[in-house]
């Protein structure tokens, strides 16, 4: 077999195996990226990572746990993006699992801050006891565990909670409109 034919066949086999990996692991990668990049960057990030996988699969993958290797590639991509954008100090690669250290544009950081600030403000607006009830529920507490302390019945606490949910949603929607 000619050298060129060998190379061509190898390339073909490699492409087929990467295609199979994409089919098997694309959703897994997408979920991993979704909690680490902005939603608008998700498709692009996913494509970039697969390009890197395709490029390095034959030389760099040692045949071990492909998923772990895939996320390492993805993590490297995020670190490179962070460096490129020079927005935040780049953490050690093995520690980069937190959404706040994802590669982000300044406007994205502002949007996140605004969102957090809106949520905080709307929670404050709920007043007591609704605020305390929402926090207790968000901590996974059952009504029985906190109503007595608040001098409420289960039913009253439940009423407060559902009213709080509605008010919170209304407040957040209203804040969005104001911001627009």
């Amino acid at each position: 077999m000619e050298q060129s034919q060998i190379i061509e066949r190898r390339t073909c086999v490699q492409r087929l195996s990467v295609d199979a990996l994409i089919r098997e692991h694309s959703q897994r990668l997408r979920l991993w990226l979704a909690s680490r990049v902005q939603r608008s960057d998700l498709d692009n990030a996913s494509q970039e990572v697969w390009l890197r996988v395709s490029k390095h699969y034959e030389d760099k993958f040692d045949g071990g746990n492909f998923r772990a290797w895939l996320f390492q590639i993805a993590r490297n991509y995020l670190v490179d993006e962070s460096r490129r954008r020079r927005l935040t100090p780049v953490p050690d690669e093995t520690e980069m699992v937190r959404p706040d250290l994802r590669a982000r544009e300044p406007y994205e950081i502002l949007i996140d801050r605004e969102r957090r600030s809106r949520l905080t403000s709307c929670i404050e607006k709920l007043g007591e006891p609704r605020k305390a009830i929402v926090k207790a529920r968000a901590a996974g507490l059952d009504y029985d565990e906190f109503v007595a302390e608040m001098n409420l019945s289960n039913q009253q606490a439940s009423q407060h909670f559902f009213a709080a949910k509605k008010l919170l949603r209304a407040c957040l929607e209203s804040s969005v409109v104001e911001a627009v």
């Binding site: 979704a34 520690e95 980069m96 699992v97 937190r98 959404p99 996140d112 969102r115 949520l119 901590a139």
Partner: peptide
């Protein structure tokens, strides 16, 4: 794909520190 949103909301709700967890 909602995980980041949930993490963010819980962080705000409980005013927890932004930790790096490996």
């Amino acid at each position: 794909e909602n995980l980041a949103v949930v993490v963010d909301e819980l962080t705000v709700m409980h005013q927890t520190a932004d930790e790096l967890i490996s």
